[in-house]
């Protein structure tokens, strides 16, 4: 499903070069639930940007569903993100002053899909992440933290992506809500969704079945568990 071969990423800021990734190689199969863990500055965010084709590596190869995607044009990367990847962001990134339904429909805009069909899909997905139907027409900023995150998950799922990339999805939540959200991810995974999670909390990473530790731009440890 995902294969990285010797990924390197160097940021240039004037004459100063910052190396974020020094050569990362790993593979993620379909249906896996993986946590990428590391302290800040470890390069995990850079890795996630490359996995989410928001960024391209300086060198090395990235295969998504068997296709090399590390050297593509901006529009091709846009299309890949729309078709293959669902993002869940730390700060939810829901559009304010916009209804829940419209937020979930956002990735379907400009897709040529009729508006009725989009709405049907969005409702279906929201039910799938068990958000109460009476919240569908609420404005996104009227929801609680856990509800917002569920809307964000629904938005990530609405396109039937191959992988879900979650960037610190519990970063803004209290422990109790974090548990509920992680349970949701576990459920999604048991339904067959491939999920890659970025976090710096070991506690959160424990919910997954494989933990890749990143430190100083290199993979430090790659452990699989069958904890649940």
């Amino acid at each position: 499903m995902i294969e990285c071969k010797n990924l390197k990423k160097v940021y240039k800021n004037g004459d100063v070069e910052t190396v974020a990734l020094r050569g990362v190689t790993f593979k993620i199969e379909k249906g896996e639930f993986v946590a990428i863990i590391g302290p800040s500055g470890s390069g995990k965010s850079t890795l996630m940007h490359i996995l989410g084709v928001l960024d391209t590596p300086t060198s090395g190869k990235y295969f998504l569903e068997g296709k090399e995607v590390s050297r593509r044009s901006e529009d091709e990367l846009s299309d890949l993100r729309r078709e293959k990847i669902g993002f869940v962001f730390q700060s939810f990134n829901l559009l304010p002053r916009t209804t829940v339904l419209q937020n979930v429909m956002l990735p379907l805009v400009y897709s040529g899909m009729p508006i009725k069909e989009r709405e049907r899909k969005a409702r279906e997905t929201l039910k799938y992440v068990s958000l109460e139907e009476n919240k569908f027409l609420n404005l996104s900023n009227q929801l609680s933290g856990g509800q917002m995150q569920r809307v964000a998950v629904a938005r990530a799922l609405v396109n039937n992506p191959s992988i879900i990339l979650a960037d610190e999805p519990t970063g803004n939540l209290d422990t109790k809500t974090s548990h509920i959200v992680m349970k949701t991810f576990q459920e999604l995974n048991s339904q067959g969704h491939t999920i890659v999670l970025i976090t710096h909390e070991m506690e959160v990473a424990q919910f997954t079945r494989r933990i890749i530790s990143v430190r100083d731009g290199l993979i430090e440890k790659d452990t699989k568990s069958n904890a649940h």
């Binding site: 846009s78 962001f89 559009l95």
Partner: peptide, 11 residues
């Protein structure tokens, strides 16, 4: 966000 969910630059 729009860019992340795959909306093309031109739109």
């Amino acid at each position: 966000l729009r860019k992340a969910v795959g909306i093309r630059k031109v739109y």
